[in-house]
Computed example of a mutant assay.
Amino acid sequence: MAAIEVPGPEADWETAPEYQGGKRNPALQHSAWEIAGGSYRIVAGLQPPLGALAARLRLVVERTWEDLGCVDVAMFRIDRTDFALSQFEGGTPQYTTVWLDRASHDVEAAINTLLGGLGIGREALAFTGTTDTGFEHLNGWTGA
């Protein structure tokens, strides 16, 4: 059987993850998190770092990227509720974003389920809310 040679990229092509107007590269690459993230919505932020939260639940943290840069993500389920925790590399302010699957309607119950599983109280919340309702800073968190 003859080997098929695949040509290299064209010299003027951008890398697949970046978009620059009249993009010459026919591929626009998305990260796995960008695709999966569409099934979730932000509902809260936690003050503890992702590493400590993931260690508590023995989660595997995956490193991926999106247009804002590198992001660490752990996706999991507690009591039939799907969550994701994420934290941007070097992001300011530092907090862990709590994502809830869009199929879950009772956000407060979901947050309570997550906090219970993590063994922490509401004092660990930096903020709650959604992009639709707006966000409320909690527990003296200033975003710094």
Rank of each mutant, 00 (worst) to 15 (best):
A11L: 14
G91A: 15
F88D: 02
D12F: 10
A52K: 15
L59T: 04
D106G: 02
G90F: 10
S104M: 06
V107F: 07
A27W: 15
T142V: 00
G21N: 13
T113K: 14
G119P: 10
T128A: 09
V107P: 01
Y95F: 15
T142W: 03
A74H: 02
V43I: 14
T81G: 01
Q47H: 08
W99N: 02
G45N: 05
Y95V: 06
T96K: 08
L59Y: 04
R80E: 15
L53C: 07
W141T: 00
L68F: 11
R102S: 04
G45H: 05
L100Q: 03
A27H: 12
E10T: 03
E62V: 08
D12A: 09
M75P: 00
N25A: 11
Q87M: 12
L85C: 04
I4A: 09
A74S: 12
A109E: 06
Y19P: 00
E5M: 13
E10K: 14
E136M: 13
G45I: 06
E123F: 07
G116Q: 13
R80C: 07
T97F: 07
W13A: 05
E34M: 14
L138W: 05
D67L: 12
F83L: 03
R102W: 03
Y95C: 09
M75Q: 11
K23G: 01
A74I: 06
H137G: 06
I111F: 05
N25L: 04
G119D: 02
E66H: 14
A84S: 14
A103D: 12
A2L: 08
E66I: 03
L53V: 13
H30T: 14
G21I: 02
Q94T: 13
S39K: 09
G134D: 08
G51N: 13
I111K: 08
D101T: 02
G8Q: 04
A3W: 08
V43M: 05
D132L: 10
L114K: 02
W141E: 00
S39M: 11
I120D: 03
S86D: 08
N25Y: 11
E10I: 04
R122P: 00
D106E: 08
T130D: 06
C70R: 13
A103V: 01
L138I: 12
T128M: 05
V71C: 03
E136V: 10
L125N: 03
I42S: 11
P48R: 08
A55I: 06
T128S: 13
R63Q: 11
A36L: 15
H137W: 10
A55R: 15
R77Y: 06
T130H: 09
G38M: 14
A3T: 09
R63G: 01
G143F: 08
C70M: 09
R63K: 08
I111T: 04
L118F: 14
T130C: 09
R102Y: 02
Y19N: 12
A109K: 07
A16S: 12
G143E: 10
A11V: 01
F127N: 01
E123A: 13
D79C: 08
A36W: 02
Y40C: 01
A55Y: 09
Q94W: 13
W33L: 07
A2D: 12
L138C: 09
A144D: 03
